[in-house]
Design a protein around this nucleic acid. Sequence first.
DNA 1: CATAAATGCTTCGTAAAGCGAAAAAATGAC
DNA 2: GTCATTTTTTCGCTTTACGAAGCATTTATG
Lengths: 161, 161
Amino acid sequence: MKRSDVSLIALRRILRATELYGRDLARAAGLTPVQIRVLQIVAETGQSTPKAISARMGVSQPTMTTLIDRLVAKGLVERRRSEADRRQMNIFVTEAGREAIARAPDPLHDRYVAAFEALPDWEQAMLVAALERVAGLLDAGHLDVAPVLDLGDIRKAPPAN
Amino acid sequence: MKRSDVSLIALRRILRATELYGRDLARAAGLTPVQIRVLQIVAETGQSTPKAISARMGVSQPTMTTLIDRLVAKGLVERRRSEADRRQMNIFVTEAGREAIARAPDPLHDRYVAAFEALPDWEQAMLVAALERVAGLLDAGHLDVAPVLDLGDIRKAPPAN
DNA sequence: CATAAATGCTTCGTAAAGCGAAAAAATGAC
DNA sequence: GTCATTTTTTCGCTTTACGAAGCATTTATG
């Protein structure tokens, strides 16, 4: 078997493990995986806009509206019209939202970090190098599909987010 | 920043790239990402059962029934009652199903494999070892996948930088 | 043999997630 | 002032997902 195939199988195991585990965790927290992700993205900077979040998650704006609707209904985020540009909505995490995030830890975080930090130093270094390499390979492939950040954009304006 | 955090960020880049790219590809092929996955699982061995597929995908049986319904409606798979145990349904890929798979390449496969195989030999070995290691860390809590780690290979890999 | 229990799948009802088309509201350019 | 653009929402639809209940079949138990 080719080594590229072996690496693909390992990659799929990673994808599968995170997906299944994420579903379990979300269920335990009373949220869906998607809701947790939206919440985390907003919480990173404390506020965001529907447009920015949808771009970040690779989802359409109408979809983001409904996702935010649900989080608002649960009292985890709130909408406030932007003062600067009144077309925009600013999304803020509420106190309840912060608590929800704290209760619903990152799907990857707990299990993985504990195991990772138990590894010997040289192995940690190897894993970091390898993961960044693979992420680079995959990101590069994705750029072909959506070459958003080309020179034109760089010339025009500093990237948001 | 801790190395576990750096590795988590890389992992998230990997997850994000595969998710976004998978959605694009599925759309281009006229199938949804989930439908492609079901089809691929069935095609691996040419046949399977709803129970087995649902277990493999981490999804309930009712969900699998509706997924198979859609694939049957599209003529990509067919149901046949098992002779050995008439409670079971066997799912077979049709010729049209095989063609659909051929037209809708694996979200990861094409670009990644090309990039991977262009890497020098030692780096391929390092990536395989690292990915299997990470997959092992993540699946550790999950029952089904055999966490067979070839420690020999890992120790042979040169420590990154 | 008979019947109770377990297994495998489907149906039903409900909810979440996703999209495109188009409406609404504000901005910016002319 | 008017028109094009941007940002978000509304509407209608499909897909994905689950639990509960139901049906047919097989296996276990008396």
